[in-house]
Design a binder for these strands. Structure first.
Lengths: 141, 141
DNA sequence: TTATATGCAAACCCTTTGCAATCCG
DNA sequence: CGGATTGCAAAGGGTTTGCATATAA
């Protein structure tokens, strides 16, 4: 069903863009963990691995990945965006521990359905939503 | 049930803080409309009304109001925070039109209940949540 | 009186942008 | 080769902060 790997080159090219080392590196880096990373994280990790890349390119590349639905941008309200791999993940929302920052993913069909109902009720056509639950995780209570 | 007006002076004093003209002005300004205002809005409105206040004080005052549960801070993902009067409003979440920026408030008990269930399931004790639905409003479709 | 609040401007943080150099196709 | 991509550093936008001055209590 889901591909075991994504051919970034093909996707990039299909968009009429150029396949570069930097773009591949950012994509690899994002795939390398299930964490919700911020741009600085990614920039630093890549530099540490000896890859030549600039912050500007990290941002610009993420933009490309987001636009192609490979990456999801998360705003957790702390002033910087996080990014998570999207291609292999089902839709989900987030539970965030305000103490340690732990992020747990959840998904609830009922809520998804109700959201549609609410949108309909107010005459909106929904394009996306943000649903984040903040509190203390088991370990931090 | 709900007070027809809030005695900011009493609340401020109870916190061991000083009641000032600027604090009262920001509070009045926030109460004067049901809109979701940003800091610059509030700063400008007050200056236009001839009230002497600085941006710094607007931010610092909002902080005080938020901490005392008089005001709610909203992050709609566009880089600046919005603020809404909280003391006279029942809890609600937001539907946001991505075209014209219209904000509609909604409330759904079922979703509220499910959120608690989800938190329990993952061992979290919930303190607050963000639930925003983005799409096109009736007029913008 | 005297510690808290304010105003100002500078600092901050994350992100974006202009531009010359580089590199993909 | 030629235009897209990059790196750099500077600019941007919202928010916060340091410090001297003003002010509530």
């Amino acid at each position: 069903m889901k591909p075991s790997t994504i051919d970034l080159k093909a996707i990039i090219r299909a968009e009429g863009l150029r396949y570069t080392n930097q773009r591949e590196s950012v994509w690899q880096e994002l795939q390398s963990s299930d964490d919700h990373r911020d741009a600085e994280d990614i920039y630093f990790s890549l530099r540490q691995k000896g890859i030549n890349i600039s912050r500007a390119t990290v941002y610009r590349t993420i933009e490309v990945l987001v636009k192609n639905n490979l990456v999801r941008k998360l705003d957790l309200g702390d002033g910087k965006n996080r990014y998570e791999c999207k291609w292999d993940a089902a839709h989900h929302d987030h539970l965030i521990c305000t103490e340690c920052g732990k992020i747990v993913e959840f998904m609830n069909d009922q809520v998804e359905g109700i959201q549609s109902d609410i949108a309909r009720e107010y005459g909106f056509s929904l394009s996306y939503h943000i649903h984040q639950l903040f509190g203390l995780c088991e370990d931090c209570r």
